[in-house]
């Protein structure tokens, strides 16, 4: 029987392989975080200039950031978010809409909280950058 990873709506397992200290951080976000959300809806997110290399099996993806030398482990949703952002910069709302359209069973509050944390973390890691939203006009 195959070992299975937990299947929450947006589970990001983030692996940092540091020069001297290999550490594994698991980010499992709960619905309780939703009330603390600080989402800046005026920005768009896009892939930074860093080079990414990836491998994928089934629904799991590993992404290597050449600039930082870190390896990141994403589930299908995390990888999908990166794919959307590689295609074009998107706002938080656009990304949330993309995710919830793919995963009908997800709780929107939980998805928003998870997405917010994912974006914050990847901006912090230098993989994503936020930029001002385009004017509707």
């Amino acid at each position: 029987m195959m070992a299975r990873m937990p299947d929450s709506a947006l589970l990001v397992l983030y692996i940092q392989l540091l020069q001297l200290n290999l550490s594994i951080q698991t980010l499992v976000l709960s619905a309780g975080l939703a009330c603390d959300l600080m989402i800046d809806r005026q920005v768009r997110y896009q892939i930074s200039a860093c080079s990414l290399v990836d491998v994928a099996w089934e629904n799991e993806h590993l992404v290597y950031c050449v600039d930082s030398g870190e390896t990141h482990f994403l589930n299908a949703t995390g990888a999908q978010i990166l794919d959307y952002l590689i295609a074009s910069p998107l706002s938080f709302e656009d990304l949330l809409a993309c995710i919830t359209s793919v995963d009908d069973g997800s709780n929107s509050e939980t998805s928003a909280a998870d997405l917010s944390s994912f974006l914050d973390r990847f901006v912090e890691l230098g993989i994503l950058v936020s930029c001002p939203a385009l004017s509707d006009a």
Binding site: M2, L17, L22, I24, V53, W57, H61, T71
Partner: peptide
């Protein structure tokens, strides 16, 4: 004796290597 997910095997191999981080992208690939 049970099959493992390849992504899980990758992580175990990488974290258990002596010089994964030294070789960088070469190791990853």
């Amino acid at each position: 004796l049970e099959p493992m997910l390849k992504s899980e095997a990758f992580l175990m191999v990488a974290t258990n290597a002596f010089n994964y981080e030294v070789l960088g992208q070469t190791s990853f690939e």
